[in-house]
């Protein structure tokens, strides 16, 4: 299936970020470990998807499970960045698990391309990213261009914003042909590749030690 090759190359651009994460691991502040874990998990998931597509022909099961892991890790990452949002994050994590279970077990099965949870999680991640960006604007006194949190949140806005937009097509089961949907996901892969490059440069910007700032 040659149509997949370009997708595969684009999605495997996460490898760059994953490798930089391994190389720089000792120079990375603990508060960023959840994100590193996401990057490595994404790399494993891409490779697994590749293997499964060529053997059983579908990667829906692992993709459905992966999005939940990604979501929970991101919630934990936002908690590490700002402990004061713990309550909201907990609430959305639990709500996410409920919606995921409903979407993948009750209303649909793990073998289907389920969209409801993906739309929900994209929105939540975008909301928390906007919140983080605004708090950086207020408190941060060093340049934002090289601020890892800022770069990551902008990348989240781009990727999850576009993803929520595309998943809507999937959710309504619009009567389009298979090539149409394939092209849609290809465009998401292009965005994904771009975002992976931002991830890689953000990982290069992660400091070893967190500078002290006062929130007053």
């Amino acid at each position: 299936m040659p149509g997949y090759t370009i997708d595969i190359i684009l999605n495997h651009s996460i490898t760059i970020a994953a490798v930089i994460g391994v190389v720089r691991f000792r120079k990375i502040h603990k508060d960023f470990y959840p994100f590193l874990l996401i990057v490595w998990l994404a790399f494993i998931n891409e490779s697994l998807s590749l293997a499964l597509i060529y053997t059983i022909g579908s990667n829906t099961v692992n993709a459905n499970i992966y999005v939940l892991a990604e979501y929970l890790l991101l919630m934990y990452q936002f908690y590490r960045w700002d402990g004061s949002t713990a309550k909201q994050l907990c609430f959305f994590a639990v709500l996410g698990i409920v919606i995921w279970a409903g979407d993948n077990m009750i209303f649909h099965t793990l073998q289907e391309n389920n969209s409801v949870f993906r739309i929900f999680y994209s929105f939540v991640i975008v909301f928390f990213s906007i919140d983080r960006i605004n708090s950086l604007i207020v408190w941060e006194k060093k340049s934002l261009q090289k601020n890892a949190v800022f770069l990551l949140c902008i990348a989240f806005l781009l990727y999850y914003g576009y993803k929520a937009f595309l998943e809507v097509f999937n959710m309504f089961n619009l009567p389009f042909s298979y090539p149409f949907y394939r092209s849609l996901w290809l465009s998401l892969s292009v965005v994904n590749c771009f975002v992976n490059i931002i991830y890689a440069s953000a990982i290069l910007c992660i400091p070893k030690k967190q500078e002290f700032i006062l929130l007053y």
Binding site: I154, G161, F180
Partner: peptide, 29 residues
Amino acid sequence: RIYIAVLTAGCILGILIIFLFVTIIRYHR
């Protein structure tokens, strides 16, 4: 045609976010 419309909408979204990125950095500085 629909696909091109979708891509255009996506590009508009992307340009907006990049514009956001640039203005935030400028005003923050």
